[in-house]
Amino acid sequence: MPHICILTAAPDYFEDSSPARANYRRLLGDDISFRHWTDPGDLTHFDLVLPLLVWGYQRDCPRWFALLNQLEQQQIKIANPVSVLRWNSDKSYLLALEQADVLVVPTMISAALTVKDLEQAEQKFGTDALVIKPPISGGADGTYRLKTGESLPEDMAGKTMLIQPFQPAIAQEGEYSLFYFDGHFSHAILKRPAKGDFRVQEFLGGSEARIDCPVGVQELAVQARRAAEQMLGVETLLYARVDMLRDPDGHFRLMELELIEPSLFFEHAADGGAMFAGTVQAKLCQDA
């Protein structure tokens, strides 16, 4: 019987992964294994490794990239592939997608963030509110909203950071997430932050609801996914979550393309995640 391993967060990570583990057991069977990504042991005997719960990898980048190198060297059967995981770890991929004509949230990169960088970004984007975040980040780690005149957070000064104009729609309308398995659309949700916040993560008070896709949303999602596949030389991504929002002019813009450890919100899928399970089984048969 094919043996599947899902890589999970470090033992001391703050967020409880047991509900997600239960979901994956329900979909993939009780015999799947779970290994902490920080100390996964020997993975060579698994038929498929999935990094779906490697939460917190951004907190130990050297160890994360060392693991990716190890997986590559040992030719571990992993999906999405190591080349995709490495590329998707750094959110500067947004600039590459923009070069491929994907409409993304406008983004600048500062190699060593200063107040002058923020002033230049305000002028470039024509805004008095910015969002800054590390290029390798997750779970809103190191993410700040800054208005003109507010102090630069000490822990971010001098670090490599992404700078983006704050998008009011995140609080007014929400963030759209679309889910694809082996290139096929599964479901979509709308995530909203808690009142007074702009971060949509559940542990920060965010909420989500299943929705039908507005006009233009799927088109952008497919364009972004296909652009990434072409860039990376991958025929089809096993799984992808595409996050986007509406800009002040009414255009949908890509926020993130989640190809490593996206929450997949199976509770909002009409089939409860059956498409995902079928995709994994098809991958196993293909590689057998």
Rank of each mutant, 00 (worst) to 15 (best):
130 L>E: 07
156 M>W: 00
154 E>C: 01
101 D>G: 03
112 A>W: 07
170 I>E: 08
148 T>S: 02
131 V>N: 04
177 S>N: 04
113 L>T: 02
162 L>K: 01
129 A>I: 08
134 P>M: 14
165 P>A: 03
103 L>T: 00
97 L>N: 12
144 Y>I: 12
176 Y>I: 07
178 L>I: 07
117 D>P: 13
144 Y>L: 12
177 S>I: 05
164 Q>R: 07
141 D>Q: 04
145 R>D: 00
113 L>Q: 06
105 V>Q: 10
162 L>N: 06
133 K>D: 05
109 I>S: 15
132 I>L: 10
96 A>W: 00
104 V>E: 11
146 L>V: 02
164 Q>M: 03
115 V>Y: 04
96 A>L: 08
159 K>M: 11
162 L>T: 03
116 K>G: 10
153 P>D: 06
122 E>P: 00
173 E>P: 06
126 G>M: 14
168 P>W: 07
102 V>D: 01
116 K>A: 07
177 S>M: 05
132 I>G: 02
137 S>K: 08
124 K>F: 10
142 G>T: 11
171 A>P: 04
104 V>T: 10
176 Y>S: 10
141 D>G: 06
100 A>R: 13
104 V>P: 05
121 A>T: 12
139 G>Y: 10
166 F>Q: 09
116 K>L: 11
120 Q>A: 14
102 V>N: 03
127 T>E: 09
149 G>N: 09
143 T>S: 00
116 K>E: 14
158 G>E: 09
132 I>Q: 10
153 P>N: 00
150 E>P: 13
108 M>R: 13
112 A>D: 09
117 D>M: 12
110 S>E: 15
166 F>G: 01
175 E>H: 06
118 L>V: 10
176 Y>K: 09
129 A>M: 14
117 D>K: 01
108 M>H: 14
135 P>M: 14
150 E>Y: 13
100 A>E: 12
172 Q>V: 15
109 I>R: 15
100 A>H: 13
126 G>Q: 09
109 I>W: 14
142 G>E: 05
128 D>Y: 06
153 P>M: 02
96 A>P: 04
117 D>C: 08
103 L>P: 01
107 T>I: 07
117 D>E: 04
175 E>Q: 00
137 S>P: 13
109 I>C: 15
102 V>L: 08
148 T>L: 06
96 A>C: 11
179 F>E: 02
176 Y>P: 14
168 P>C: 11
97 L>C: 11
108 M>F: 14
125 F>K: 02
138 G>F: 10
173 E>G: 03
160 T>M: 15
100 A>T: 13
140 A>M: 11
